[in-house]
Amino acid sequence: MLELRLVQGSLLKKVLESIKELVNDANFDCSSTGFSLQAMDSSHVALVALLLRSEGFEHYRCDRNLSMGMNLNNMAKMLKCAGNDDIITIKADDGSDTVTFMFESPTQDKISDFEMKLMDIDSEHLGIPEAEYDAIVRMPSAEFARICKDLSSIGDTVVISVTKEGVKFSTKGDIGAANIVCRQNTTVDKPDDATVIEMKEPVSLQFALRYTNFFTKATPLSSTVTISLSNELPVVVEYKIAEMGYVRFYLAPKIEE
């Protein structure tokens, strides 16, 4: 038996909107730690890791570890039917081939339940080691989204370089080239507007903008984004989910031949 009650249901709606275009089907894993997911995109270039910790739910009952295969597009369709202020409860019985999403309006005058069919998904689970990164950039998530969008109108790939001077996003295409440099800036009114760069080693890595643009669908989840880079390793683009956990996107770099 599984019953997870999330008062801020809009968080789950935003989570689905942030990953449904990157990943088609995925197993949601439920354990005493929380509600989590790990999935690769269909071309196996990017990986999404989601964690919603059990403490973030108002009620969290998970009698035994459970893995539920869901089509994310269908799940997003159902969650779209929940109001932004609704409380969402996820329910499943042991051995059932369905999951139920219950939506309660804040005033309790409208209660809906949507039952979705589960599916068997044979997915690889990858072990992601805790790593020390050469450079970590924290910046406003809207700024990162803007940069990825702007650069993708010029080129297909972005080179992200971190030096003492700041973080540089560069692209080249048929019509020309573009460079955007963001300097460390901590003298802002609101801490979330700051750009903070922690650098151990200079880093320069190239990525497909097609994927970074998918990642920025998570912008509504958090006002800041953290980009962790090490030479020749996948980048981690992390959006924290208020008090509850995170959505992390991992993307393999493009290597010059």
């Binding site: 996948p234 493009k254 290597i255």
Partner: peptide, 14 residues
């Protein structure tokens, strides 16, 4: 020319 490798090249299957 740059080449895109899969993410599974970097992380082992558990």
């Amino acid at each position: 020319c740059s080449r895109q490798f899969p993410i599974s090249l970097y992380f082992a299957t558990t």
